[in-house]
């Protein structure tokens, strides 16, 4: 029996070569190049995807570890013709220049919104015991710091995320 996982709602066979990272699986085997390779060593965040709703770095993940899990890549978040509200906000606030780190920033932000709602503290959370965490700009900045942007579009990215997070509407679940 072939082992499978789900990528953007579709069942996918796990690779035979255990060396294949989740990143290379989606890019090279599934031809979903929206997830980007910026360092392949866990230092830039461009390869961020959602696994069962949690953001992880697909470059450090061996695909074989994800049997039975549900992976969402940027292609599963929204398409050019049917954008996720956060993708639309990135365009409106010019939250990118070259666009290479962008899919990772967007997937990361979706995962981050869940973490804030769940009450996961961050390095800048003043009161660890507080049940609710206000999504201040510094909270967003700290929590997004695992996603590098070299074009220097940090302000636009935080603007876009702040608009969605503070809109007080839950982010819709990514399309499956």
């Amino acid at each position: 029996m072939t082992m499978t996982m789900t990528v953007n709602g579709s069942p996918v066979s796990l690779p035979h070569d255990a060396r294949v990272s989740l990143l290379d699986l989606v890019r090279e085997h599934l031809h979903l190049p929206g997830t980007k390779k910026g360092c392949n060593q866990g230092a830039c965040g461009a390869c961020t995807v959602l696994v069962d709703g949690e953001r992880i770095l697909s470059c450090l993940a061996l695909a074989v570890q994800f049997e039975g899990r549900s992976v969402t890549t940027i292609e599963g978040v929204g398409t050019p013709g049917a954008l996720h509200p956060l993708q639309a906000a990135f365009i409106e606030h010019d939250g990118f220049q070259c666009g290479y780190c962008t899919p990772g920033q967007i997937c990361s932000a979706i995962g981050m919104a869940q973490e804030i709602r769940r009450g996961v503290p961050s390095h800048v959370t003043a009161d660890l015991a507080a049940p609710d965490i206000a999504p201040t700009r510094d909270e967003l900045r700290e929590r997004m710091s695992g996603n590098l942007c070299r074009c220097g579009t940090h302000n636009g990215i935080i603007d876009a995320i702040a608009e969605i997070v503070s809109a007080d509407v839950l982010l819709p679940e990514p399309a499956q």
Binding site: P33, K37, I74, G78, T79, L83, Q87, G99, P103, I106
Partner: peptide
């Protein structure tokens, strides 16, 4: 004006050099 290539970029649909099979 918002970037005309914005929808492609935010959807990961803009093809970069390593993405031409």
């Amino acid at each position: 004006v918002s970037r005309i290539d914005g929808p492609l970029k935010v959807a990961g649909a803009a093809p970069f050099a390593a993405e031409f099979p």
